[in-house]
Design a binder for these strands. Structure first.
Length: 505
RNA sequence: GGCCUCAUCGUCUAAUGGUUAGGACACCAGGUUUUCAUCCUGGCAAUAGGGGUUCGAUUCCCCUUGAGGCUACCA
């Protein structure tokens, strides 16, 4: 059996789109599931849209997302573009002479022809066609040029393009692995430009030539390519090549059901990473947009995805890119994650929030100037991990740990229908109790035990003591429990914050 | 306009001729907890419409409607 090879073939136009990420993921999973190859190819045939640095960026993000490809293009440590695997680097702009050769072959064999029509003529032709409610299509004028006329025009250096000569009769039929049988009448297919006047191929030609030369077995790409697939099949036929299998993927949509676009929100993978989504969570989320495992499982590691993925689970309808569920998935991953890893990811956000700064191997709390280590930050992160949805929230949610003065309304200290006096008294009781406690006993389970005893001894309700204490330590309506916080804060700060609260009342 | 495609809860989706149309997110309620979150329990909520085929249609066929994509010397 033929080796399975898929390719991800983005254009370097700026950033990696989440829709492209999903395409890349499916290509990757399909290849890996079948023990095949996953190739990265850069489709940079449009010089006008090329964005400097986007290839390097693309390679970096793919790498960060864990979608490892074994052939094509990569970047070295200096960001220079290099070959990856045994072949490459696959950049279409560097393969111009290859396309030229194949275009010449097509012309030679009568499957393509020179077209010298000016932009003005084409525009006018299309305008008239639309006025007559016809489909705008090339009228085939240059098909009738004689050999001599062509040579004369070429000699005069007249700008030209090369067009595919599409038969007027018959139809193209193929079986898409997702959409099933697709049949299109040849007469509705335009004589597509396959080589532009600047000598660059268009997508259609470059795509077919490269997929053939790179022995791609399955072309997995977005649904927007479905209508042009017949052109590609015609091209394979003209070359006498066997066409690969095609699998088109339903589109990702804006909330108004139009094709997902930048105008209506974040679409760049980088944006989501910046917002504090984990790569695994993002991958898991886009996996489920258009594919289902036929079971009720929803959380998959990359390895599990590889094991489970198949094209038959891909559905046909487009799906709205709604990040509500991404938040939930991200939370699941955060809770499952190794604390060291999580902390490493959180540190930049703490620095960005101006809570801490890095000093060599240690960190300084900006507010107090205290020096803390990674282990301490880990404890802080552990406090919050249960309620975290995005890493980016961490700065806001642990601010109270790193601030010396808390800013809150004193009414917040009052639990249910307590009086101010009672709250004050209870805080005073806690203060006295903790004052005599050894620093070493400032551990959450011990503190719980001690304060529970205090509650019982004084015949109080737990909330009457715990709530004011928690607010005194955090100044917040919602937060982790007071004992874990007290442990992280340490004796001195705890006492100071209780005192501050008592004075406030 | 032409061509192509699609259509199940608000959202992501399951059910490919027989189910009280299932799950998840979100939302609501209850429980656990000093609070928020987590966790547990429960609730709300869908087959676009009309014709066929069939004993029986979410499922097969046709029409209508709606939505999207393509229609470039962009990919």
């Amino acid at each position: 059996m033929k080796k399975i090879r898929t390719r991800f073939a983005p254009s370097p136009t700026g950033y990696l789109h989440v829709g492209s990420l999903r395409t890349a993921l499916y290509c990757y999973l399909f290849a890996k599931h079948n023990e095949g190859d996953f190739v990265l190819r850069i489709e940079d045939t449009d010089r006008a849209r090329y964005v400097e640095g986007s290839i390097e960026n693309l390679v970096k993000i793919l790498d960060f997302m864990g979608l490892e490809y074994n052939e094509g293009v990569s970047a070295d440590n200096d960001g220079k573009i290099v070959q990856k695997g045994n072949f490459g680097p696959y950049m279409q702009s560097e393969r111009l002479e290859i396309y030229k050769k194949y275009v010449d072959e097509l012309i030679e064999n009568g499957f393509a022809y020179y077209c010298f029509c000016s932009k003005g003529r084409l525009d006018e032709m299309r305008k008239n066609q639309q006025l007559q409610k016809q489909a705008p299509m090339y009228d085939g004028k240059c098909q009738n040029l004689s050999k001599e006329e062509i040579q004369k025009l070429l000699d005069k250096k007249t700008p030209y393009v090369v067009r595919l000569k599409v038969p007027k009769e018959g139809f193209v039929e193929f079986k898409d692995l997702v959409y099933g049988k697709i049949r299109i009448e040849n007469k509705t297919i335009d004589d597509q430009v396959i080589m532009k006047s600047d000598g660059f191929p268009t997508y259609h030609l470059a795509n077919v030539v490269d997929d053939h030369l790179m022995e791609i077995s399955h072309v997995i790409r977005g649904e927007e390519w479905l209508p042009s697939t017949p052109k590609h099949i015609l091209l394979y036929k003209a070359f006498g090549w066997e066409a690969p299998e095609f699998a088109h993927l339903p589109l990702l949509l804006n909330s108004d059901k139009s094709k997902l676009s930048k105008r209506q929100g974040d679409v760049a993978v980088e944006d989501f990473l910046k917002l504090g989504y984990l790569p695994e969570a993002l991958l898991n989320f886009v996996l489920l947009l258009g594919w289902n495992p036929k079971t009720e499982e929803e959380i998959f590691s990359l390895d599990e995805m590889i094991k489970r993925f198949d094209l038959s689970g891909v559905n046909k309808a487009g799906s709205i890119f709604n990040t509500e569920k991404l938040d939930w998935i991200n939370g699941m991953y955060i809770r499952k994650m190794d604390l060291d890893e999580l902390t490493k990811l959180c540190v930049p956000f703490l620095i960005e929030a101006k809570l801490i700064e890095q000093i060599d191997e240690k960190y300084k709390i900006k507010n107090s100037g205290e020096i803390i280590d990674f282990e301490y930050i880990k404890k802080v992160i552990a406090l919050e991990r249960e309620r975290m949805k995005k890493i980016s929230e961490i700065g806001e949610s642990v601010k109270f740990i790193f601030s010396d003065e808390l800013d809150y309304e004193k009414e917040l200290l009052i639990w249910k229908k307590m009086t101010v006096e009672d709250v004050k008294n209870n805080l005073q009781l806690v203060f006295e109790e903790l004052k005599n406690l050894d620093e070493n006993n400032f551990q959450s389970d011990k503190l719980l035990e001690i304060l529970n005893n205090l509650v019982e001894k004084n015949e109080l309700k737990r909330g009457e003591v715990f709530w004011p204490l928690r607010v005194a330590l955090t100044g917040l309506k919602g937060s982790p429990g007071p004992f874990e916080i007290a442990e992280v804060l340490g004796k001195a700060k705890v006492l100071k914050r209780i005192e501050f609260a008592i004075e406030k009342l």
